[in-house]
């Protein structure tokens, strides 16, 4: 087990400091920065049990699964706010929130695949908020808060997925080799490197 007394969020990715020598595996910033895969924003599909729409937003409840071109998310409740100018692609998502079900002990689960690296990031959190980046048509962030756990599956470097506990993590989405980018704050990581 490796305890990371502090990790700092940098633009280049999650920079892990204070790493014990026993954890001399793949904890570099670049690794957690993931990326090197070009993913574009695309259609999103939401599967739900209960649904309400009020004209400017909709709420999907009950084992909601959200699938987009860039990530997959499972939650108890997802609220999507719609707005902006309608065009060929329709009005866009101005914000989306996801909640777990505390009474049932379930959290929001977000999965992000780095197809080129063959890595998979999974985030478990009480809440998640998606906001598009108005300056980048294909950009946006997913902000995880509340008992955040990040699991990194990297078969080429880790014997089993690493587990990082964080207070707060942000996944930046976009097109190009630098995305998805993952920024986090204080936390601790458990790593099991390959021999």
């Amino acid at each position: 087990m490796v305890h990371l007394p502090r990790t700092h969020a940098k633009k280049s990715g999650l920079l892990l400091t204070g790493l014990l020598m026993t954890a001399l595996v793949c904890t570099s910033a670049g690794h957690y920065a993931g990326a090197a895969v070009s993913q574009t924003i695309g259609p999103v599909t939401i599967v739900y049990k209960h649904f309400t729409y009020t004209g400017s937003s909709f709420t999907a409840e009950g084992g909601v699964t959200l699938t987009s071109a860039t990530f997959n998310l499972v939650a108890q409740t997802v609220v999507v706010y719609l707005g902006g100018k309608s065009g060929p692609g329709g009005a866009g998502i101005t914000k989306a929130t996801a909640e777990g079900n505390p009474s049932a002990g379930t959290q929001v689960v977000g999965r992000f695949d780095d197809l080129k690296q063959g890595h998979t990031y999974k985030f478990y959190a009480d809440h998640a908020v998606y906001k598009p980046d108005p300056s980048k048509p294909s950009g946006g962030t997913v902000d995880f808060t509340g008992n955040v756990t990040m699991s990194l599956s990297a078969p080429d470097a880790l014997a089993e997925p690493s587990i990082t506990h964080l207070k707060h993590a942000i996944v930046t989405l976009g097109s190009g080799p630098d995305y998805p980018r993952i920024d986090g704050d204080e936390g601790q990581t458990v790593l099991t490197p390959l021999h």
């Binding site: 999103v44 939401i46 209960h50 649904f51 729409y53 999907a60 009950g62 987009s68 329709g90 998502i93």
Partner: peptide, 23 residues
């Protein structure tokens, strides 16, 4: 279920929603 203007909706039978301009 919905209003006649199709501006407010609700469903309890499960289903899926697709947004072409997604995430």
């Amino acid at each position: 279920d919905g209003d006649t203007k199709l501006k407010t909706l609700s469903s309890n039978s499960g289903g899926s929603v697709a947004l072409p301009k997604g995430l």
